[in-house]
Nucleic acid binder design. Structure first.
Length: 577
DNA sequence: GCCGTTTTCGGCCCGACTGTTTTCAGTCG
């Protein structure tokens, strides 16, 4: 699995640790050692800052799951760029064998045996071995295994991977809608429910006294390309759009436990189980049970289970083992911001630049959503490809918005904003006379993404010191699966944003989701304020603000952290802080 | 390899499903 580290600098370290784990699993006898490497990898993957900064302050071995041996390897890797231990491990196994692990239903034992007994060293060779029916010659392997492997190879080559949350969201809603009539209760679970930025598959949990009915309906849906497995309580299908969907059915008294279990995260579940054991319980997908007599304590709802463990209810977005269990036990969970708290959108485009709805359509759509205000932020002049507004057109748009507001045509107040390019030298793309006329400016990076960290940090610090800048738009400028985050010194940039009162945007555009959660957490520590926007280019995508809300909740944000939960008058004051 | 109010050893989540078995190993989540 490629690393999706919160700080891109940590990607190679995470890959290094996971590769060690992979090789140890294929060759090794100790099954816990690879787990230790994976745990350390997960910890480092979630770090908001380069692991080198933890090395510098001597705190690497204090990270969860990182002890003496692993911290030594991490240090060796960051200084030498390679790890002797891994170099030696690599000699024992061809890299193609590692790649086979990416195939569904091929794990370390299978890959190891294919290599040891058939000398299969690549996925291509595995395909050949299956076609020549050599795999079925191995003890414990048969005809169906060969067929499954060929299917997995095909799926892998067609790029079966993770999907944007927004793509999965619609499918999950369809599944819930379609299967709802067969269930007592039904809900999406998994990373989709936790509002992660990408999801690998869709998990649906349902309760029913008649599981066969819902299972049959699930497998018979027209969107099903093939059935991966089908049992009494659990089935998996591959949908025609390439997404995998899993359905799990339990009795209604276990619905909460199953929902909790399959919502995860895995790490959250592990910690929760540990806490359960400490308190004399056993927790599984059927409920919470007393250990001494196995009597049921809770299971009908998640609230009931957290309650029985003397905790506050933990919203799914927080279930990442980032201290939420400790906070819930201490009655100290944040009151997370909700979509209904948002009083207006501050990042919207119209057909004046690269949007496809008119100013009036956007205002009407904002009004329909019950917003108090909508900020229009078309692109500035440098954005030629996006039809950015020249100074002259920007002046005209301001006049137009003023006229619209005084016309009384809309109850919603239209704010004059702009998404102003942060130029490579850190200046904003409009002169002060325009910036001074705007209600506020959103500054964004749209060019020269590959600047060195030091230069990029300078660029951003210059922009953040501009008194006309109110909001730092999609701060990392990443596009999920397409473009990496820009690199900058997060401490310096967030510190400057806090000091200058520049609010950080959480952009809800489905392929941006920027800031991401770990950086939100980091920025909040610096005392930054935030805004939640849709970055919509069409009147229907104002609803994308829900993805910004999801990310904000994953970042532990409360209503008071978010500027656009304020009324218009207070907001304008905050934007000029 | 990591970890610790069961602490320096002995655990490390655990249940469903599949394909191959004839009681289970491997994979997945």
């Amino acid at each position: 699995m490629p690393a999706h580290a919160m700080d891109p600098a940590n990607g190679p370290v995470v890959d290094m640790l996971n590769e060690i784990a992979d090789i140890l699993e294929i060759t090794g006898s100790d099954r816990f050692r690879p787990l230790a490497y994976r745990r350390a990898a997960r910890t480092i993957e979630a770090l908001p800052k380069p692991v080198s900064s933890y090395i510098a302050e001597g705190s690497v071995s204090q990270l969860a799951g990182v002890g003496g041996a692993i911290s030594a390897k991490v240090k060796e890797f960051t200084t030498a760029g390679r790890v002797e231990y891994l170099e030696n491990l690599r000699k024992t196994i061809p890299s193609g064998v590692l790649e086979m692990l990416k195939l569904q239903d091929v794990g370390p034992k299978t890959a190891g045996r294919l290599f040891a007994e058939l000398r299969v060293t690549t996925i291509d060779e595995l395909e050949k071995a299956c076609r020549e029916h050599r795999v079925r010659g191995l003890k414990g392997f048969g005809e169906k295994t060969e067929e499954k492997m060929l299917q997995s190879i095909e799926f892998y080559r067609s790029g079966g991977g993770r999907f944007l949350l927004s793509a999965a969201d619609g499918v999950a809603a369809m599944l819930v809608e379609r299967l709802g009539k067969y269930a007592q209760r039904i809900s999406p679970a998994g990373s989709l429910r936790r509002r992660r930025e990408t999801v690998g598959d869709i998990d649906i949990i349902a309760s029913s006294a008649l599981p066969e009915g819902i299972m049959d309906a699930f497998a018979a849906m027209p969107e099903v390309r093939n059935i991966l497995s089908k049992g009494d309580t659990k089935s998996s299908v591959l949908l025609t759009n390439g997404l995998q969907a899993d359905l799990r059915v339990v009795a209604d008294e276990s619905f909460g436990a199953a929902l909790m279990y399959f919502t995860g995260s895995k790490d959250h579940n592990v910690v929760l189980r540990t806490v359960s054991i400490e308190k004399g319980f056993r927790l599984n997908e059927y409920g919470l049970f007393r250990r001494e007599d196995s009597s049921a304590v809770a299971g009908r709802s998640e609230e009931e289970i957290y309650g029985a463990l003397s905790m506050q209810y933990i919203p799914p977005e927080l279930r990442e083992a980032r201290g939420e269990i400790e906070a819930a036990s201490a009655n100290a969970l944040p009151a997370l911001v909700e979509e209904g708290d948002v009083k207006g959108d501050l990042h919207c485009h119209t057909d004046w630049s690269d949007g496809s709805s008119t100013l009036e359509e956007m205002a009407a759509a904002a009004e329909e959503r019950g917003y108090e205000y909508i900020g229009i932020t078309d692109h500035s002049g440098s954005e030629k490809v996006a039809n950015g507004l020249s100074a002259e057109r920007m002046h005209r748009q301001i006049e137009r918005i003023h006229a619209l507001n005084s016309s009384g045509r809309f109850r919603v107040r239209v704010l004059c904003g702009s998404e102003v390019d942060i130029l490579p030298d850190g200046r904003l793309d409009y002169d002060d006379d325009i910036l001074g006329r705007l209600d506020y400016a959103v500054g964004s990076v749209h060019s020269r993404f590959n600047m060195e960290k030091k230069e990029m940090t300078e660029r951003l610090l210059t922009a953040l010191s501009n008194p006309h800048l109110s909001i730092f738009g999609h701060p990392t400028a990443r596009e999920i699966g397409r473009r990496d985050a820009i690199t900058f010194d997060a401490d310096a940039v967030f510190g400057a944003a806090a000091e200058n009162g520049v609010l950080l945007e959480v952009d809800g555009s489905p392929s941006r989701l920027d800031l991401p959660d770990a950086l939100i957490i980091e920025a909040k520590k610096h005392g930054c304020g935030f805004v939640l926007d849709s970055d919509s280019h069409h009147r229907t995508s104002l609803a994308d603000v829900r993805y910004a809300v999801g990310m904000a909740r994953r970042g532990w944000l409360e209503k008071k952290d978010v500027g656009n939960t304020l009324g218009a008058a207070e907001l304008l004051k905050a934007l000029h802080a």
